[in-house]
Computed example of a mutant assay.
Amino acid sequence: MLVFCLFCFCVSVTGVLSKHIDHRNLFTQRVCCKRQSHFVYIGQDISGSPVSVDVGMCRSHCGGASRPPHEAGQQEYSKHSSMLEFLRSKKMRTRGPSAPDSAEVLNHLPSCGVNQVCEPTGIRVDRVLLLEGPREVEVIEECHCEVRLSQCIRVPALKTFYSETPYEAVIDVGGCSRSKGSPEGFSCVPTKFDSALVETPNKVDLIQTVAACELKESCYRVPYVEYYYETVHHADGVKEERLKEIDLGRCLGGCTTGNRCLLRAPSDPDICHLWDGKQSSSCVPQGYESHSFLNQHGQIRTVLSITSCFCQN
């Protein structure tokens, strides 16, 4: 009798302690940021057949394996000391909502931790010949847990071009960090760009890469420089032809004016499952200035440059 009581005491103490275990400690045991299949229809091939590509997706939650009903019942019964207690608990569950067990709670927790996000490790760029012409499709190859940074910086982003061919090349196209704690309406976006050359069987492809990122509003201006020939007449009568640099500017980003998120993911507030139905606006130039100069033919040429951008309905 004494041994049985000691056994019951140990079981009850273990049960109480297990209820107070922080689930975040289990992240190291169940990190399951994995790539899952995600097929997307991209059009018809040259024969008219539909084409779907598995572009993949990064799954950021642990998914528990389903158990057969009889095994689930046996495990549920093993939690109770007697059949009478099992029947009582089952009757109470039918009257009201029951608290989920630790396994069920864990299956709904983010797999990468509080300050991490499940993101692609590498992306492969496939070229598919469709009826309307060739199209590039980005395919996620692998996923991993990446630390969510607090500052806005450029981060590496590897893309593989012409995979499994003699011209295969891995380029760091770069990206911007998904910084947390950003002010409302601001995002970490690319502001400077560069380029990389990739050799192909037919020509040389020019790949745009991200060089720098800044915290900007959703609709923002980026530099875009062009050069012109300018003719200058000096006081001594000498005519000089030189290059004139003008930053014309470009408007980038998207406008979400009026678009409110109605349902966000409980695990990651950055993920929106449902938006309201209002139409989004476009990012267009707002302010501008003019630059006038004499061209090579002695004619006055005026070029407008963007100074600011805004969201237009």
Score class of each variant (00 low, 15 high):
Leu109Asp: 13
Asp22Glu: 10
Lys34Asn: 15
Arg59Thr: 12
Asp126Gly: 01
Gly254Glu: 12
Pro285Arg: 08
His38Pro: 01
Phe9Thr: 10
Cys261Val: 06
Ser78Met: 11
Ala169Pro: 00
Lys203Asn: 15
Gly56Arg: 06
Gly43Lys: 03
Val13Met: 10
Pro201Leu: 01
Pro68Arg: 00
Glu289Arg: 03
Gly253Cys: 11
Ser52Thr: 14
Pro50Ile: 06
Cys143Tyr: 05
Pro50Gly: 06
Phe7Val: 10
Ser82Cys: 08
Ile207Val: 10
Lys91Met: 01
Arg67Gln: 12
Gly287Phe: 07
Met57Tyr: 14
Leu17Trp: 07
Asn259Met: 05
Leu6Trp: 13
Val137Leu: 13
Val284Arg: 15
Cys311Pro: 08
Asp205Pro: 01
Lys19Gln: 13
Cys283Arg: 04
Ala196Arg: 12
Thr14Val: 10
Ser81Lys: 12
Val53Phe: 06
Arg221Leu: 04
Gln116Arg: 10
Cys32Thr: 10
Thr256His: 15
Leu6Ile: 13
Ala235His: 13
Tyr224Asn: 14
Phe293Pro: 04
Lys203Gly: 08
Val173Glu: 04
Asn107Gln: 14
Arg264Leu: 02
Gly287Glu: 12
Ala265His: 11
Pro201Gln: 03
Leu26Ser: 09
Tyr227Gly: 00
Glu138Leu: 06
Asn295Thr: 00
Leu262Cys: 08
Val55Ser: 02
Pro110Lys: 06
Glu241Asn: 05
Gly48Ala: 01
Pro50Val: 06
Cys32Gly: 12
Asn25Ala: 06
Pro68Gln: 00
Glu168Gln: 15
Leu131Trp: 07
Thr231Lys: 11
Gly277Cys: 12
Gln208Lys: 08
His70Met: 01
His273Leu: 15
Gly133Asn: 11
Val128Phe: 04
Cys188Tyr: 02
Leu248Tyr: 05
Phe310Leu: 12
Phe86Asp: 09
Asp126Met: 00
Gly113Ala: 00
Val137Glu: 11
Asn259Cys: 02
Val170Ser: 15
Gly64Gln: 10
His20Thr: 04
Gly48Thr: 04
Asn25Leu: 08
Ile171Asp: 13
Ala235Met: 09
Val125Thr: 08
Lys244Val: 00
Ser81Ala: 15
Tyr224Trp: 14
Val13His: 12
Ser177Met: 02
Gln36Ser: 12
Pro156Lys: 07
Cys219Pro: 06
Cys309Val: 03
Gln44Lys: 02
Val125Asn: 12
Cys213Tyr: 04
Gly73Ala: 15
Val137Trp: 10
Thr209Arg: 09
Cys8Trp: 13
Leu197Arg: 14
Gly258Gln: 10
Cys62Val: 05
Cys188Lys: 03
Pro97Ser: 09
Asn295Phe: 02
Ser49Pro: 00
Val222Asp: 01
Phe4Leu: 08
Phe9Asn: 02
Cys145Phe: 08
